[in-house]
Nucleic acid binder design. Structure first.
Lengths: 192, 192
DNA sequence: GACGAAGGCTAATGCAATTAGCTTATGAGT
DNA sequence: ACTCATAAGCTAATTGCATTAGCCTTCGTC
């Protein structure tokens, strides 16, 4: 019997393709094994089990997202950087509806790659804030606000949670515009 | 053998308690049956199956959340209403970490109660916007922004996605403050 | 008091996850 | 080329949950 030539990366990447097609909750070792043309237990040579595969998938997707956010942010500042990062964030979620939810899993402290990927992704957010001159404790609050808005919007969109027909692109633009205004006025006490 | 005296509502409410204790992904007919003291197949007399139970749980939690949001909004307007609804939203998610994610499931069009609950919850958001004088198409964008921010924050919080020790209450206050400023200036073109 | 529907049960099936243990391809060292 | 340890695949067996079928009994109604 010839070997399939698998390794952990191949397995994880196949899982990533699978969840984008069938949804994250349908991630199953049986389906991954079938797509790779091996018997289910063979996967245990590469991943510890179903939970571990989900965690490795999270690490992979988080690294991928962080990379795209960083690429969007480089060479930009202020509103320019905000719009670019926001667009990259939503774009990733739309292109990868199964991987995106995986990026929201809390990084496993035992997986240095996972932790590093999470820090890189958050770093892109802080880079945007830096362009607005927001630092220190205020940056923590602003980062949480920015993450909340972006994650909230795209997770609701990907889940189909916005019912009305009004254009989502326009709504997203409006939200990002309001975030820009909020960041420009951050720390002012909102007296506008 | 004496009867357990179950009905659909009892089953769904027990499922709600279960997910708050063990997490939404651990919702299982076997666990619900064990807690109710019946054999697993007995539940099929009250719910169509595991998927249907999850959907009914979503409807129940959504109705519960909508009720609390409406109660928070009544008799208030403007920033007062915004802060009250935002506080109620986060409070619900923190008290019900398993039910809250269930509220984000898209309502089943075949379940009128579910659809109505979803509309009620969104209605609370529109009520807040009305207090800012935001209506029409602009209200759709503003509602999406508001939902995104609130949902994003509490889902990240409940999932443990905020790593740093800085006080979450303060961050939430800052975010809601920035939303108040954004809604006051909504439609101005963000020229501040 | 009879009876039919509803609510409970046991038994059986199917699927996914996991573990144990076997077999063989592969490649490093002679 | 030859050996041989390791790694990568396999089958078989176990467990747990979901689901369906079909039986039995309780309960409310006439």
């Amino acid at each position: 019997m010839p070997r399939a030539g698998l390794n952990q990366q191949i397995v994880v990447r196949e899982a990533a393709r699978l969840v984008d097609e069938v949804g994250r909750e349908q991630l199953t070792l049986a389906a991954v094994a079938a797509r790779l043309g091996v018997a289910l237990p063979s996967l245990y040579k590469h991943v510890r089990g179903a939970d571990a595969l989900a965690q490795k998938l999270s690490a992979f997707a988080t690294a991928e997202l962080a990379e795209e956010l960083m690429t969007a942010a480089v060479g930009r500042a202020g509103a320019d950087a905000l719009h670019a990062v926001a667009a990259a964030y939503r774009s990733y979620a739309r292109r990868h509806p199964g991987r995106y939810p995986a990026t929201q899993q809390v990084p496993d402290p035992a997986d240095p790659d996972h932790v590093a990927a999470g820090e890189r992704a958050v770093g892109a957010v802080y880079a945007v804030l830096h362009g607005y001159g927001i630092t220190g404790d205020a940056a923590v609050d602003a980062a949480r606000t920015l993450r909340s808005a972006l994650h909230g919007f795209v997770s609701l969109e990907v889940a189909g949670g916005f019912g009305l027909p009004r254009d989502l692109d326009r709504s997203y633009d409006e939200m990002v515009g309001s975030l820009d205004a909020a960041l420009r006025a951050w720390g002012s006490g909102w007296t506008s």
